[in-house]
């Protein structure tokens, strides 16, 4: 659960959340921090994560993009997405707007259940509505489905809104606290690397800036 809230924070920072002072202020402060720190990068460049900063990594990335291995997962996800359930319904009946791309709206605050809902959870809700067993978070089929849906959202800006209600704001705050909590052998927080030291090297890795980080950048 904490992890979900964490992602709500990361993604939520870039939303144009109306009339919610705190997340919006945080977003502006962070954007300013990164625009000042990396004056040569355009706002759009940040979407490329570490590849905007590291020419070596960018070269490898572009070479891999020539025929990316993730196409295999996307093909599998696409096939699953259009395969009917036992009751004849399909995923597309749950996600009617899928063609326009939907993953940029996840995670979102669900007003009914008062929880943060990720795309994976939404897929499992769709399955349960159609009397199918939920998929494990680590299941290849679930990962492939999210990969396909994320691919349909390619080049769409993240569009997450945090409603101005205390419970949603608290979830945001919990995620923010998690991001700043120091832990582990090196006593680093997420922020140590991706806010304070973004662009510097940790061993041979360039640290990516928080601004522009997407689900695809989840560290394993």
């Amino acid at each position: 659960m904490t992890k979900l809230l964490f992602w709500l924070l990361v993604l939520g920072l870039f939303s144009a959340a109306p009339s919610t002072a705190t997340p919006l202020n945080d977003q502006r402060t962070l954007q300013q921090h990164f625009f000042t720190q990396f004056p040569t990068l355009s706002r759009q460049d940040f979407a490329n994560g570490v590849y905007a900063l590291d020419p070596d990594a960018k070269q490898s990335w572009l070479a891999i993009e020539q025929f990316p291995p993730y196409e295999i997962a996307i093909d599998r996800g696409k096939k699953n997405f259009f395969t009917p359930f036992k009751n004849g319904q399909r995923y597309q009946d749950c996600f009617v707007d899928y063609q326009q791309g939907i993953s940029q709206h996840y995670p979102y605050w669900d007003l009914k259940t008062k929880t943060v809902v990720t795309l994976s959870q939404a897929i499992n809700r769709c399955r349960q509505l159609n009397l199918e067993a939920p998929l494990k978070p680590t299941a290849g089929d679930l990962i492939a489905l999210t990969a396909y849906l994320a691919f349909l959202s390619r080049d769409q800006p993240i569009a997450i809104t945090i409603p101005p209600i205390p419970a949603a704001q608290a979830a945001y705050q919990q995620g923010k606290d998690y991001y700043h909590q120091r832990r582990g052998q090196l006593n680093f927080s997420c922020a140590s690397c991706h806010i304070q030291n973004a662009g510097k090297r940790l061993r041979t890795e360039t640290l990516s800036p928080l601004l522009g980080q997407q689900l695809a950048d989840i560290p394993t």
């Binding site: 070596d56 990594a57 070269q59 490898s60 041979t204």
Partner: peptide, 9 residues
């Protein structure tokens, strides 16, 4: 690449 971003790929 001079530096591998990912040793598996």
């Amino acid at each position: 690449p001079r530096i591998a971003e990912n040793g598996a790929l």
